[in-house]
Design a protein around this nucleic acid. Structure first.
Lengths: 228, 228
DNA sequence: ATAAAGCTGTAACATATGTTACAACTATGT
DNA sequence: ACATAGTTGTAACATATGTTACAGCTTTAT
C-alpha cells in the first residue's frame, strides 16, 4: 500500500485513540484490498449487498438517492479517511440504502467483516469509535429527512446562508458549491432554487453575483426560519 | 420487576442467543430503573440528550417528527420488547433525532450506558445484536427518506396496498390503521390521502368501505409503481 | 338509547414546486 | 484569443399537494 493511502487510513476516526502499530498490523496481511474507481463512476447501487467495510483512502464519494427519472437527492459527501456505510455492515440484509458515486478519482480500502468483528471485540476504542460513527450517520440522515419534509426552499436557503455566514465569519459568504449542486443537496430543481434566490433579492434581503452572496437584512433571513 | 416486564426484556432482540441467566443478572442489581408514562404522554423530544439505553417493556411508542404547526411524520412505531434509539446512545452529541410519544400506557426499562458498554465487550452476541439493530434503524430511516422524497401519494398508496394484500394474503385487505394514521405515516394531509383513494375508486382500480379495501385491478396498481 | 368523540368523504380554493426552454454569462483548456 | 462546456437567471405553464370547512358516518362511553 502506498504511503499516502496508509496515512489516510490511519487518519480514519474509527482508529482514533488506537496504537498506530495495531492499525498497521491490520493492513500488513493479505486481508485488505484496494479498489480504484474513476471520477464519475458508479461505485455501488442502492440494494447492493455490503459485506466488507470500506474506508475511503483517496478522493470523494457522493451518497445519494436517485429516482427513475434521474432526480437526485444527495445525502452525504464522504471524504478521504471516512468509512463508508459502517452501520450497513451489520444490518439484517446488508443492503446499501443509497447509491455511491465517485465525485473524483477514488481509492477504497476494503476490510472483511470477520476482521472488523475481531477488532470490535479486542479494541474498546475501535468499538466506541464504530458506534459513534453509526450514530452520526443516523443523526445526519434523520436531519436530512426533517429538512426534506418540513422545510420549504426558502427556509433551506435561509438556514444554509446563515450557516455559511457563520462558518465563513462574514455577511458576504461565497457559496462553496454551484447552485446546481446546492439544488441537489436540497432535493429541489435548479430553476426553483434560482427563483427563490431571486425573490430574496427583489425583497432586498440578499444581493448576489454568481456565487458571491451578500446578506443585507440578516434579521429577515432569521425570521424566515422562525416561521413568522 | 414484574414477571411480565422481565419476560418482555428477555424477548428483546438485543439479547437473542444469550444465556437467560446472564440477562437476568443484568437486571437483578440496582442499576436499571423502570419509568412509566400514560397514554398520550410526550416521553422525549427531538434534541433531548439520550444517555441510557431504553427498552420498552410495556406498551407502544411512536417515533416522529413534528412541525411547529403540528404537522407530523411518523418514522416508526416501537413495540413491547424493542430498544429505543440504540444508535443514539453512542452518537457524538447523543441528541434524539425524533420525538417519542406514548401511544398506549408505557413502561420503559432504562440501562446506564456503562453497563451497555461492558455488555458489548463481554458478550459477542449482544454486540452483533446491537449493531444489527443500529443498522436496521438506519435502513428504515433511509427508506422513509426515499419514500418521502420520491414517491407521490398515489405511489405510496399503491405500494402500501400491494404490501397489505401480500401480507394478509387476499386482494381485499383490511387497513390496519385509520386513514388518518396512514396519512401521518405517509407524511401527507388526510384530505389529500382521501382524494387519491377516491381517484383510485373512480378509475375502477379499488373499491372501499371505510377500512375495507378491494383491489379490483391489481395490474393497474402495479403499473403505478413502475412509473408508467 | 343517547350523547360525545372521532373518522371519513368531499369541495373550492391557495400555493409551492416542478417542467421546459432559451438566452446570457463564466470558466477552461488549447 | 477562441471555442467549448458548464453555470446561471428567467419566463410561462403544469401539477401535486396543502388548507379550510362542513356534513355524514362510526365507534365508544355513559
Amino acid at each position: 500500500m502506498q504511503e499516502d493511502h496508509l496515512k489516510a487510513l490511519l487518519a480514519c476516526h474509527l482508529f482514533d485513540g488506537m496504537q498506530r502499530s495495531k492499525v498497521e498490523n491490520l493492513f500488513s496481511g493479505e486481508q485488505c484490498h484496494l479498489f480504484r474507481y474513476n471520477r464519475g463512476a458508479l461505485i455501488a447501487f442502492r440494494g447492493d449487498v455490503y459485506t466488507n467495510l470500506w474506508i475511503l483512502v483517496e478522493g470523494r464519494i457522493a451518497a445519494e438517492f436517485q429516482d427513475f427519472s434521474g432526480k437526485v437527492l444527495k445525502v452525504e459527501t464522504l471524504k478521504t479517511s471516512e468509512a463508508v456505510a459502517s452501520s450497513i455492515l451489520f444490518a439484517p440484509e446488508n443492503n446499501l440504502p443509497v447509491n455511491l458515486s465517485a465525485e473524483t478519482d477514488v481509492v477504497i480500502c476494503s476490510i472483511p467483516r470477520p476482521q472488523v468483528i475481531r477488532l470490535l471485540q479486542q479494541e474498546e476504542r475501535f468499538l466506541t469509535n464504530f458506534l459513534r460513527d453509526s450514530g452520526l450517520r443516523l443523526t445526519i440522515l434523520a436531519e436530512k429527512l426533517r429538512l426534506v419534509q418540513f422545510a420549504t426552499i426558502t427556509e433551506k436557503i435561509a438556514g444554509y446562508l446563515l450557516e455559511q455566514a457563520d462558518t465563513q465569519g462574514t455577511d458576504s459568504p461565497l457559496l462553496p458549491l454551484t447552485k446546481e449542486a446546492l439544488a441537489e443537496i436540497f432535493g429541489v430543481t435548479r430553476p426553483s432554487l434560482s427563483r427563490e434566490f431571486s425573490q430574496f433579492c427583489t425583497r432586498g434581503i440578499l444581493s448576489q453575483t454568481g456565487r458571491q452572496i451578500h446578506i443585507l437584512k440578516r434579521e429577515k433571513l432569521e425570521a424566515v426560519l422562525e416561521k413568522n
